[in-house]
Design a protein around this nucleic acid. Structure first.
Length: 662
DNA sequence: GTAGGCTGTCATCGT
DNA sequence: AGACGATGACAGCCT
């Protein structure tokens, strides 16, 4: 639930549970066959559903249903759509969740393709299928994104491509470097660590899970401010979009490969010194295989293994869940692919951090990102970590290539640019790609503003770590919890100087991050205060205008009273004494003229001085009180003064504050 | 040359 | 007692 205010105090309520509730109700209706207006026949099975839902999810149904308005519509699906494949799709249409198994995923994919099921983009299957049907996930033999065209998938399926993961090797070998020494077993490190610290990669988020503003994480002052002014813009909302995001090469459509092929080489060559051929191979290897077999200059093979930031950070950071290998998965296991809206979380947790304040990502992107975050193999984790500023070093060629991706939520990442800058700055000198990004998820908010100085200091720290033969990355040192950090130190035999240095690095790095947070909060606070000032000024102007209007109305009303009073006196021909008696016996509540009459009667006995005093109390700037040069004006003065007096008198009785006209 | 902004670091305080 | 986060102050760098 969000409440956001505009400058003119207009509020917008946006429910984050409404859409899910609607969908849930529709699903219940479907199960009860309530209000269903279409029957879909697949093979020999029939399914009841709502036209609007089907048409919303599927291009096929949209086309078939559009011209049918009558009742009892029956749609016979083509032969290639099986009941087994269609049923999960129907369920997906009503629940956003796709339940599938290794056995039926191809069937579902085929049906989705034929029916043009939206939000189950090929990218999802492109990501999912290799996981199921490759026995070497995470170990470099996956063929991904070779072709995203449906035909290719069909061809692969028909040819049993996914039935035998070993086949991949032959295909890949033709485009990969023949002999690439595999890097240390990063995936196993990840697996071990993640097995200890991470939850399984299933992402099943109920849509009614609300993203609440986490004021508890704010400093006291800021928290007080936020709470005090009922901040419409939560702190998380102010997070720069660069806190985004995990993405993977896996989700790339074909165009990315093509673009990569066409555009990547120049940047790669110029900045890293590798040849066009290398770049091409690298590009292809990125798109056609898992990253383990990417060129070693990504994580330079020339560096000592323990100095490799990849190794260090991957082994130290255990936040990412390892991908469940196909052979490790239960045959009957199903994986839920759920839409998850606006997930904002720490990159370290492996969850996706999509900018909530920015334009909404498509559900496909959301889902892919979620899956990627929950299912990162080494490749995706590296890319996503680079995107998250986790400190995994990528050379500019990789980053330039990343920028070509068709994934919009990765393409517009400032992080990529920032990383490119970092890489460019260091690519010339560093054979070893040191880990020079200190973002640890929680502070990954400042990619676009962090200059070279920070990178340099971090790099210096990394260099010093290397010089001291310390097998740690700065990022690893910073991101570890206290206990993990202590345990990590215990596993190493470090001298006193080394220990002090590591602690110093950790302390300074954490403080640096804290300073960034602090400054960001301060800026946010200033910004919010400025908005508050503007809002209050607008409100003040509005109230002033309202007050003026009310004053005018009040004066007009009193003038009407005066006219009526004069008319009454003239018609009744009351003498002053009669007026006095009249006023005496008429309560103010019962007679609207009583106050007027009373005052009028009293004024007949007022001296000129008292009258002037009353008039001066009323003030002359309203134009009501005119110099008493004539009887008429004197009467007007009297009436005005009596108005004032009676008003104030009434205020005393009613305890209602009525401001005196200015 | 100078002002202003940004960032890292240190010191200090409160938790 | 020690770790940690927040924050003010200061210095260095850059524009």
């Amino acid at each position: 639930m969000k409440m956001s205010s505009s400058k003119n105090s207009e509020f917008r309520f946006q429910s984050s549970v409404h859409s899910a509730h609607i969908l849930r109700c529709l699903d219940e209706q479907r199960q009860k066959d309530f209000l269903c207006d279409v029957t879909v026949v697949a093979e020999n099975r029939s399914f009841r559903a709502h036209r609007s839902v089907l048409a919303s999810c599927s291009e096929y149904f949209s086309a078939r249903i559009t011209n049918h308005t009558g009742q009892g519509l029956v749609i016979n699906l083509p032969d290639e759509v099986t009941a087994e494949g269609f049923e999960p799709l129907l369920q997906f249409a009503y629940t956003s969740k796709l339940l599938f198994t290794k056995e039926n995923v191809l069937e579902i994919h085929n049906c989705a393709t034929v029916l043009g099921f939206k939000n189950l983009d090929i990218a999802c299957f492109d990501f999912i299928l290799p996981r199921f049907f490759d026995s070497n996930v995470g170990s470099s033999k996956v063929q991904r994104n070779q072709c995203c065209k449906t035909k290719c998938w069909k061809a692969k399926a028909e040819s049993g491509f996914y039935k035998d993961g070993a086949n991949d090797n032959a295909d890949v070998s033709s485009v990969t470097r023949p002999s690439k020494k595999q890097e240390p077993n990063i995936s196993s490190n990840l697996s071990e660590k993640a097995g200890r610290t991470c939850s399984p990669c299933q992402v099943d988020t109920e849509a009614d899970t609300e993203v609440e503003s986490d004021y508890s994480s704010l400093c006291p002052k800021y928290r007080k401010f936020q709470l005090a002014c009922g901040k419409s813009q939560s702190y998380t909302d102010t997070e720069p979009e660069n806190t985004v995001s995990t993405c993977s090469l896996n989700c790339l459509p074909c165009s990315s490969y093509e673009k990569c092929e066409a555009t990547d080489t120049v940047a790669s060559k110029t900045s890293t010194g590798i040849t066009d051929e290398d770049a091409m191979t690298f590009c292809c290897s990125l798109t056609k295989q898992s990253p383990i077999e990417t060129p070693q200059n990504v994580c330079s093979g020339k560096t000592l293994p323990q100095m490799c930031p990849m190794t260090a950070s991957c082994s130290l950071r255990g936040s990412f869940s390892p991908p469940p290998k196909a052979e490790e998965m239960d045959e009957s296991a199903s994986v839920q692919v759920t839409g998850k809206e606006c997930a904002v979380s720490d990159c370290r947790t492996g969850a996706v951090s999509l900018n909530p304040g920015k334009e909404e990502r498509s559900s496909v992107e959301m889902e892919v990102a979620n899956q990627l975050s929950a299912w990162p193999d080494v490749c995706s984790s590296r890319v996503s970590e680079a995107a998250c500023g986790q400190g995994v070093t990528m050379k500019s060629s990789e980053l330039q290539w990343l920028k070509q991706l068709e994934c919009p939520f990765l393409r517009d990442l400032g992080a990529v640019d920032a990383q490119v800058r970092c890489s460019e700055a260091t690519s010339g000198s560093a054979e070893c790609s040191y880990n020079f990004s200190l973002h640890s998820g929680e502070d990954s908010d400042s990619f676009d503003t962090e200059g070279d100085s920070e990178s340099c200091t971090s790099e210096q720290a990394s260099l010093l770590l290397a010089q001291m033969q310390l097998p740690f990355s700065v990022d690893g040192i910073v991101s570890l919890s206290r206990n993990d950090f202590q345990q990590m130190l215990k596993t190493q035999r470090l001298t006193r100087e080394q220990l002090d240095f590591v602690h110093d690095v950790r302390r300074r790095s954490k403080n640096r991050i804290a300073a960034r947070r602090c400054r960001k909060r301060k800026l946010d606070c200033i910004h919010n205060l400025e908005c508050e000032i503007e809002r209050l000024q607008n409100e003040k102007e509005k109230l002033a205008a309202e007050k003026r209007q009310l004053d005018e109305m009040r004066l007009k009303t009193w003038e009407n009273y005066s006219v009526l009073y004069d008319k009454l006196c003239a018609e009744a021909k009351l003498q002053p004494e009669q007026l006095q008696v009249f006023a005496k016996y008429t309560s103010m509540a019962e007679c609207p003229f009583s106050a007027h009459l009373s005052t009028k009667a009293q004024l007949y006995h007022c001296s000129e001085h008292e009258l002037q005093t009353l008039a001066s109390c009323f003030g002359s700037d309203t134009g009501i009180f005119e110099p008493s040069t004539s009887t008429t004006s004197a009467n007007t003065q009297n009436r005005a003064a009596s108005n004032l007096q009676s008003t104030e008198h009434r205020e005393q009785h009613d305890h209602v504050h009525v401001s005196r006209p200015n």
